[in-house]
Design a protein around this nucleic acid. Structure first.
Lengths: 229, 229
DNA sequence: CCATATTGAATGAATGTTCAACAAACGAGC
DNA sequence: GCTCGTTTGTTGAACATTCATTCAATATGG
């Protein structure tokens, strides 16, 4: 009468009463993302989060000191996840700049990152970032490195293809477009689906880097440079 | 002892005690935008708004029924202003599609629309839009018409210049880029200024519509089509 | 004087935080 | 294996605060 179905280690972590501190924190962070997506930032309450996690009211203040700390931890969690995701995509893409750029763009629309829930949570934080230096710093820290990668890739492709654009501005425009497409997807308006967003990004690449990306096969960049336009 | 410096009709509207209903509403809406920009959505209170307008606490519930109504009216106000602005820019641009597109892009970065205060307010609403159908509808209603204009212009330029892109995707990409640049400007991070954003947009136009926009003079589109690339 | 705009204190609801009680795991001693 | 005390995680009610809303009193302009 002691061994219930308790202790079902889904993947090495205990889920029952004695979940480790880190596991419980993550569980609460996931519930926070849920609440942000469902109710928005201003209506997300500690009670919502606790209920969403199926735990009692006071639990959050035990694992996180305050609501503010919980939200910061949640943003940190999402920022880390995002950063790890594009960095992994980058190394997996090999050494070819065109393939790398394509991989970064694809990574941005990966389902694990780009879904309504996460996008809504991101947007909730963006909406508060201007008046909260902490949020702004967390968003910006990663963005800076991300932006730098885009600049470098644009620069290399420019050299390789002999394009006339300004690498810095082109990189800024590309990353801004990706964020704008995210925003559109989150809003869920009308005609913006993940497919149409991906297609728009592919069109951009084909227009700006015509020697590296073809329009017929937007998924696959041209591996080598074709000097004869 | 009755005629103070009261009644200083700045531009035909009374500012003193007996400001007209519509004037007072507008005054409170401006104060709301201020508060949204300074404190963010979740920290904007009725007291902040009243204080910002230099009026007493209960005044907002008199002119607007509730906080929710005030915020909806504020969003409506900004949406109307934005819509009027780009429509005016469009008609002023004449009949040439390239000039029209350039005018739309320029309009988006006009100081009267594109300043930290307004951008922050927009972003505050975006952050809540997902969980508030009313906000979503107000943002979307205008966006749809805006988007359609972009699609039409891209289509005409494509026909005129013989480009290979898909007009719909290109329009989506362009408008997304503009919104993304707004987001960057609002965040106020690092290297994003109104000038760099404008430059990035100009680069986009020059890359995608090379026969209509030159890179040397990003401000001025090429009026006529140069069929000889 | 009448209608209307404005005030500011009172009210009640919502919510973040605290904390004393409670339960589960764990280890020591038998 | 069993008990017992300790540590640690968890609960839920109580508390304090913040804030939107209400409204009776007041001021103002016509």
């Amino acid at each position: 009468m002691k061994t219930f179905e308790r202790e079902a280690p889904a993947d090495g972590e205990k889920r029952g009463r004695k979940a480790s501190k880190e596991t419980r924190r993550q569980q609460l962070i996931e519930a926070t993302i849920d609440s942000l997506a469902k109710r928005g930032y201003s209506e997300t309450t500690m009670a919502d989060v606790a209920d969403g996690a199926g735990l009692s009211r006071g639990i959050v203040n035990f694992h996180f000191e305050s609501k503010e700390k919980l939200l910061v931890a949640t943003l940190q969690y999402m920022a880390d996840e995002y950063s790890a995701h594009w960095r992994a995509a980058l190394v997996k893409a090999g050494d070819d700049p065109a393939r790398q750029l394509s991989a970064l763009v694809q990574a941005d629309f990966d389902r694990s990152i780009c879904n309504k829930r996460k996008l809504a949570a991101w947007c909730a934080f963006w909406g508060e970032a201007k008046s909260r230096p902490t949020y702004q710093a967390l968003c910006g820290a990663n963005d800076e490195a991300y932006q730098q990668v885009f600049i470098d890739l644009c620069r290399r492709l420019k050299e390789d293809g002999g394009y006339g654009f300004d690498a810095f501005s082109t990189a800024l425009g590309l990353s801004a477009m990706l964020e704008g497409l995210w925003l559109r997807l989150m809003m869920g308006t009308e005609n913006a689906t993940r497919e149409s967003a991906q297609h728009a990004a592919a069109e951009f690449l084909a227009s700006v880097f015509p020697k590296h990306f073809s329009r017929e096969a937007p998924r696959r960049p041209i591996p080598a440079v074709a000097k004869t336009a």
